[in-house]
Simulated scan of single mutants.
Amino acid sequence: MNYKKQSSFKGQTAWSGLLFGIGLMALVDEIIFHQLLQWHHFYDWDTPFIGIMSDGLLNAFGLFALVAGLFMFADLKRKQAISLRRWASPVFIGLAGFQLFDGIINHKLLQIHQVRYNVDILPYDLAWNIFGVILLTIGLLLLYTEKRGGRSN
């Protein structure tokens, strides 16, 4: 396999994993915290209708990202150009990226919602962001071991 084609597969593997991870975490967040626990909506500072509509948009985004990542994965699998080990790293980085973006940007900078209301928020913020850092650490460790192992796919 020539270098240009191999490099293209690496990029597609990374995008597939990132999209899958981001989509999966968006859906986990939406299903658990927005729907089952009903702690918040994606956008909390308007009417309940807007809050629920914003949740629907987040669901649509998460599902689109997850499916796009899986289609890219299936294409790589069909071409026999994917390593599950190499794919796992960007999946964890995508999971972490969504978690940390939500925890830092959405919760703190933009303040479009909090993890939970009417409680001491610090333990929730710490748990939310520490979990994101753990996911990121796993993804980076997988990336490091993969690069160090010198695998070609």
Rank of each mutant, 00 (worst) to 15 (best):
K79G: 04
Q80H: 15
Q80V: 11
A81S: 15
A81M: 10
I82K: 04
I82V: 15
I82P: 00
I82L: 15
S83D: 06
S83H: 01
L84H: 12
L84C: 10
R85V: 13
R86Q: 14
R86D: 05
W87E: 02
W87G: 00
A88N: 03
A88K: 03
S89N: 07
S89E: 07
S89I: 03
S89A: 15
P90V: 12
P90D: 06
P90M: 10
V91R: 01
F92D: 00
F92V: 09
F92T: 02
I93A: 10
I93C: 06
I93R: 06
I93D: 01
L95H: 00
A96F: 08
A96W: 08
A96P: 04
F98E: 01
L100K: 06
L100D: 03
L100Y: 05
F101K: 08
F101D: 04
D102T: 04
D102K: 08
D102Y: 05
G103Y: 06
G103C: 05
G103D: 03
G103E: 07
G103R: 01
I104F: 13
I104C: 07
H107C: 02
K108S: 05
K108L: 12
K108H: 04
L109A: 11
L109S: 05
L110F: 13
L110S: 01
Q111D: 12
Q111T: 08
H113P: 00
Q114M: 14
Q114P: 01
V115N: 02
Y117N: 09
N118T: 08
V119G: 02
D120R: 14
D120C: 09
D120Y: 15
I121H: 02
I121M: 11
L122N: 07
P123S: 11
Y124R: 02
Y124C: 04
D125A: 10
D125N: 15
L126Y: 03
L126P: 00
A127H: 04
W128Q: 01
F131R: 12
F131T: 15
G132R: 09
G132T: 11
V133E: 08
V133R: 09
V133D: 03
I134V: 15
I134D: 09
L135G: 02
L136C: 07
T137W: 15
T137S: 15
G139S: 11
L140Q: 11
L140V: 13
L140D: 05
L140C: 04
L141R: 14
L141E: 08
L142Q: 06
L142D: 01
T145P: 01
T145H: 14
T145I: 13
E146V: 12
E146D: 13
